[in-house]
């Protein structure tokens, strides 16, 4: 990203204007990447995108849906988000992580909609020259996203009940049709 940014700002001859346009478009697209998706998250795809010659460490966190929560069998989780604000919140958290650590890559993508058992609900990827920064940044990003991004899980259980998740896990289960 830094290299592309430098290229974007580099003084170029007119002959290179087309190349510059393409580079700036790529830069623009990457800057506007979506952090909320209705599609299945392919963690390997994000891992491969994080690879960088300057990075000696890539840390990937995949938050997966498990089949048991507080003693109840979980069938799936339906995630809801206030998408425009969730996008902004995650982008801000990533920007702040990049201010705190020297990262080559940092990405966080969260699912909305129905997510089945063993499927990824959220992925966070960080890469840096050494593992210490990548680990610390990754933990920082997922902790803040879970706390701050307007995203909510609605767990559906095998006994026919469902429950909206809260940070304190104090919501009462209720029956649904």
């Amino acid at each position: 990203m830094v290299q592309r940014f430098l290229l974007f700002h580099h003084r170029v001859e007119a002959d290179y204007s087309c190349i510059l346009l393409v580079v700036s478009l790529i830069y623009s697209i990457e800057e506007n990447e979506m952090h909320i998706t209705e599609e299945n998250i392919d963690v390997i795809e994000y891992y491969n995108k994080a690879k960088d010659p300057r990075s000696g460490a890539i840390v990937m966190f995949s938050g997966d849906v498990r089949d048991l929560n507080k003693g109840q069998e979980v069938l799936y989780i339906d995630y809801e988000a206030y998408i425009p604000l969730a996008e902004k919140t995650i982008a801000k958290i990533l920007a702040e992580a990049n201010e705190k650590w020297d990262l080559q890559a940092s990405e966080c993508v969260h699912r909305v909609g129905k997510v089945g058992i063993c499927k990824t609900a959220v992925v966070v990827i960080t890469s840096s020259a050494h593992r210490k920064e990548a680990y610390a940044a990754n933990r920082y990003i997922i902790d803040r996203v879970k706390q701050e991004a307007p995203i909510w899980k609605h767990e559906f259980f095998a006994d026919g009940t469902s429950e909206w998740g809260t940070n304190c896990d104090c919501a009462e289960p209720h029956h649904h049709d």
């Binding site: 959220v122 991004a149 899980k153």
Partner: peptide, 26 residues
């Protein structure tokens, strides 16, 4: 307007406000 606001913010006629319960993503 897609931004968190302070609790003291005054609500003008025609405003659209979003009430955001505690997050539970992840």
């Amino acid at each position: 307007n897609e931004e968190f606001v302070e609790m003291a913010t005054l609500l003008k006629d025609g405003t659209e406000v979003f009430i955001i319960p505690p997050s539970s993503g992840g």
